[in-house]
Simulated assay, not measured.
Amino acid sequence: MWLNASCFLEFQMSVPTPFLLMLRPRSGWQQWIAREEYVLSPSVPVVEFTDSFGNLCQRIVAPAGHFSVRTSVDIETAEASDTAPGAPFVEVQHLPNEALPFLYPSRYCESDRFTNMAASLVTGRISGYDQCSAIVDYIRDAIRYTPGDGQQIISASELNQLGHGVCRDMAHLGIACCRALSIPARMVVGYLEALEPMDLHAWFEAYVGNRWYTFDPTQTDLKGGRVAIAFGRDAADVAIYTQFGDPVELLNMDVRVQQMSGPPY
């Protein structure tokens, strides 16, 4: 399907402020970018680089006063994410090097604390994809999804005690449990068509069957176009913007995803 996805951020600052932005999706396995707009107002110099996870990042210094960022992308993406029940577990010694960083505990995914719990959740399941599915089933049953209620980032352990959270937090728990079983898992931030309420969304991917597969504890199925913007170990790696120095005021954030009838040109 063809989608147009856009994000508008509006800030007010008292002093010039360094920012690190992460708002440009890349063409990849299940998405192809046909057109992209990226407007900073007022215009400022931008230095772009690719981080260690392959994300496109932009460094800027925003001036004091009013500042906005507007992005828009026309993109062809799959109508549903691939599934593969029965896809096998990949032994650690056979994993590609780029998957290895997603085996370790991280700031918000304390997988070393979930060894026993993860093992109990997947009892009787075939090692690999089916274990990931069992973990997702547990999160859907045990954790209440409360979109719009996640100002404070919480870890997998904190979410498991609290019992409710946003998409980002639920992804943390899924990632931690997968890693506890020696399954590489990474966080994804992006757009999801028909998400209610509309916002940027977070889910996770696990490496089984020699490739990455999508898992989303907040959705009952994997239908709908997804646009991945950034990948990382947890939320600390995939913030769409990070500002440094004095606090700034986010005046407005508007995210829109619309299906298009066909190629835009």
Rank of each mutant, 00 (worst) to 15 (best):
M1T: 11
L3H: 05
N4R: 14
N4I: 07
S6C: 04
S6L: 03
S6E: 09
F8S: 15
F8I: 13
L9S: 01
Q12G: 11
M13S: 15
M13Y: 10
S14L: 08
S14M: 08
P16D: 08
T17R: 14
L20D: 01
L21D: 01
M22W: 00
L23N: 05
R24C: 02
R24Y: 00
S27W: 06
G28T: 12
Q30L: 11
I33S: 03
E36S: 07
Y38T: 02
L40H: 05
P42G: 08
S43I: 11
V46M: 12
V47K: 11
T50R: 11
T50H: 02
D51E: 03
G54Y: 04
L56T: 14
R59G: 03
V61P: 00
V61R: 10
R70Q: 09
D74A: 15
I75V: 14
T83P: 09
P85K: 03
P85Y: 04
G86C: 01
A87Y: 00
A87N: 02
E91V: 12
E91H: 10
Q93N: 12
H94L: 12
H94N: 13
H94K: 10
P96A: 06
N97I: 13
E98A: 07
A99S: 06
P101C: 02
Y104V: 08
Y104W: 08
Y104P: 01
P105A: 14
R107W: 09
C109E: 00
S111V: 08
D112N: 05
D112W: 02
R113S: 06
S120L: 13
S120T: 15
L121D: 03
V122H: 11
V122R: 13
G124S: 03
S127K: 13
S127I: 02
Y129H: 04
V136T: 06
V136I: 08
Y138Q: 05
D141E: 15
I143E: 00
Y145N: 01
Y145Q: 01
Y145D: 01
T146S: 14
P147Y: 14
I153F: 07
S157L: 13
S157C: 13
E158W: 03
E158M: 14
L159E: 11
L159Y: 06
C167M: 06
C167F: 10
C167L: 10
M170K: 05
M170F: 02
H172K: 02
H172V: 01
L173M: 13
A176C: 07
A176P: 03
C178R: 07
S182R: 09
S182M: 11
S182P: 03
M187S: 04
V189E: 08
E193C: 09
L195I: 11
L195S: 11
L200A: 06
H201I: 05
W203H: 09
F204W: 07
V208E: 04
R211H: 10
Y213P: 00
F215K: 15
F215C: 14
T218F: 14
Q219V: 03
Q219W: 06
T220G: 08
D221A: 07
D221M: 13
D221Y: 12
G225V: 04
A228R: 11
G232A: 04
G232C: 03
D234Y: 06
D234M: 09
A239L: 12
D246V: 06
L250D: 00
M253F: 00
M253I: 03
V255F: 01
V257T: 15
V257C: 15
S261C: 04
P263A: 12
P264I: 12
P264F: 04
P264R: 11
